[in-house]
Design a binder for these strands. Structure first.
Lengths: 185, 185
DNA sequence: CGTTTTACAATGCAGTCGCATCGTAAACGC
DNA sequence: GCGTTTACGATGCGACTGCATTGTAAAACG
């Protein structure tokens, strides 16, 4: 064997380049050559770690999903009361800081693809289901917890896309979340 | 001049083919040749009516946006009480029938592109603003009407994407809308 | 009737695409 | 030392891309 290589790190580095391209110029701009250039590696290396382009995209989606969830989980742990925890969770799902603004368009791009590509839809559903269960748990033990979780999740998803398009601004989105939170709690 | 031709009808026919392709296989599958084949015309005809691909996509987006709004407007006029009118409006925005199921993925594809393409984002914002104003008007004269409209619009947008991905089913989405409506009214 | 203009169809072109193939430098097992 | 295996880099290939160019049948206009 040649020089020892951290397989996972290489793949993640390439996946990062995929996300950067998808976030700034859309999934249509993601080609093997562009990805290789963006990652600062050769095209041969990209092919070495991913047999097909679809495999690469799928891995990139898994990477950014995980990052999204971890950022949300981190935002929650710092809060104490149920209300502030739930609020932090919801706000973390919105593109309000640099990290969120970078992730948002990427998630939206994969979401659109999931509508026509089953292999993306499946993991997206899975992570969405986990999120909803988490939300329902935080809403509390009311009989409507599940339904409230669906509403909150949809609300945040909608706010996300409207923020990214520039249809609303951050203050409006936060106000919407707070107003809905007042009703749920 | 040669045989007299309904310019607008030809363009619309091509735009329909664009939407069909975008809805079933995503915007990435929209090439001049695919569009021409799908529309049953020659590639030369497509080029005759649209100078560039971007121009064609922009027109197709305008067409489907208009169709979406008209379908919603039609759903509203049949109802009497404010509550049923608002409910019909919100449900018409969801992909619950064949028309909605066909439009949904197309709208989602353009939405994702709007996040990275300003020329799509601008008309999308405009039509979204009109929708929100319409919503606010129907919510009533409460001081929170604007904010409620933002919440309802985001909720429906979120439900739309979650329905398309298969994350929730139609019954859940309708229940979410009704539950939220109970609070607003 | 002839000219001009419109509405295409057909073909060509340079560039890009995903992917396969080939070559090779390096590290490990023997 | 030596063959095997890993990790690439380089190159090539056929398909496809958006777009430009050219040709042409037909209808309106003088």
């Amino acid at each position: 064997m040649p020089k020892q290589v951290d397989h996972e790190a290489r793949k993640r580095r390439i996946a990062d380049a995929v996300c950067r391209l998808a976030g700034t110029r859309g999934l249509e701009a993601v080609s093997l050559r562009h990805v290789a250039t963006e990652a600062g590696v050769s095209m041969g290396q990209v092919q070495h770690y991913f047999a097909t382009k679809d495999e690469m995209l799928l891995f990139a989606f898994a990477v950014i999903s995980e990052r999204y969830e971890q950022r949300i989980a981190a935002a929650v742990t710092s809060k104490r009361t149920p209300r502030t925890r739930l609020r932090a969770l919801l706000l973390a799902m919105l593109p309000l800081d640099d990290a969120g603004l970078a992730e948002g368009p990427v998630l939206l791009a994969f979401l659109a693809r999931a509508a026509v590509a089953a292999e993306i839809a499946a993991p997206l559903r899975e992570s969405g289901a986990g999120m909803r269960a988490f939300l329902a748990e935080m809403v509390g033990s009311t009989p409507d917890a599940e339904r409230e979780a669906v509403i909150l999740q949809a609300l945040v998803d909608g706010l996300l896309s409207q923020l990214l398009v520039g249809h609303i601004d951050a203050r409006t989105a936060i106000a919407a979340v707070d107003h809905q939170l007042d009703r749920v709690c």
